[in-house]
Amino acid sequence: MTPPTPTAARFELLFWSLTAICSFVTLVVLIAMVGLVLRFHHARDRGDAEPIRHHNRYEVAWTVVTFAVFAGMFVFGALAFRELDADTRETESPLEVSVTAKRWMWKFDHADGPREIDALHVPAGRPIRLSMISEDVIHSFFVPKFRLKHDVLPGRASTLVFRVDTPGNYQLLCAEYCGLDHSRMRGRVVVMTPDDYTAWRSRRSSQPEGDTP
C-alpha cells in the first residue's frame, strides 16, 4: 500500500532503512557469537594461541564506525523531522480545524462551518492545520496510517499540519494515557476527494448536527 501522506512516505523510507541496518548488525553479532562459541568451545583444541588483551586499532575502529553510523541515522531522522516542523509553521492557506480533546472524545470545529465528534472530514490533497487543546488531561492525536502523532495539552495549544493524498477512512487513536476509557477514545479521519468534500460541506450546512459518512 502506498503511504497516504508525504510524512508517512518519509517515515517508511527511514524506518525500513533503519530496519535494514539494524537487522544486519544484529545478524552479524549473532552469527559472530555462535561462530565464536563453536570455534572456541573448550572441547576443541585451539592450539597455544594466546588470547588478545586489547588491540587499540580495533577498539578505535569500532568506536569510530559506530559513531559514524549513528551520526548518519541522526542526520536523516533530523532532516525528516525538520520537514515536519517546517510544514507546521510555513504551510500556506491550509484548511483550519480546531480540535478539542476531553475525556474521552475528540471534538472538531471547522473554521467556518460544521462541528463533528470523533470524526474529522477533510479533503484530499490540501494541507490541514489542526489547532489542538485539551479540556482536562494530556491526550495525544495519533493516526497510525499517517505515521503522525502529537500530544494535546491542557492550557497550551499544539499545532499539527498534514496533507493526505489518498482518500479513505483512517483510524484515529488517543496515544497518551488519559484514564478510564483511554483505549476507547478512538475516532476516524475521513479523507474525501475535493468534490465529495464540497458536497459533504453543503449537506452539513443544511443539517448541522448529524454525523454523516
Binding site: T7, R10, F11, L14, F15, L18, C22, V25, T26, V29, L30, M33, F70, M73, F74, F76, G77, A78, A80, F81, L84, S140, F142, P144, R147, L148, K149, H150, A175, E176
Partner: peptide, 24 residues
C-alpha cells in the same frame, strides 16, 4: 543477544521522525 536487539531498537526511538510514529 537481547541487549543488542534492545539497544538497536532504541536507535529507532532516538531517530526523531521515526519516534513521532513509534512513541507511546
Amino acid at each position: 543477544a537481547l541487549f543488542t536487539i534492545g539497544g538497536l531498537t532504541g536507535l529507532f526511538l532516538a531517530t526523531l521522525a521515526v519516534d513521532v510514529h513509534l512513541h507511546d
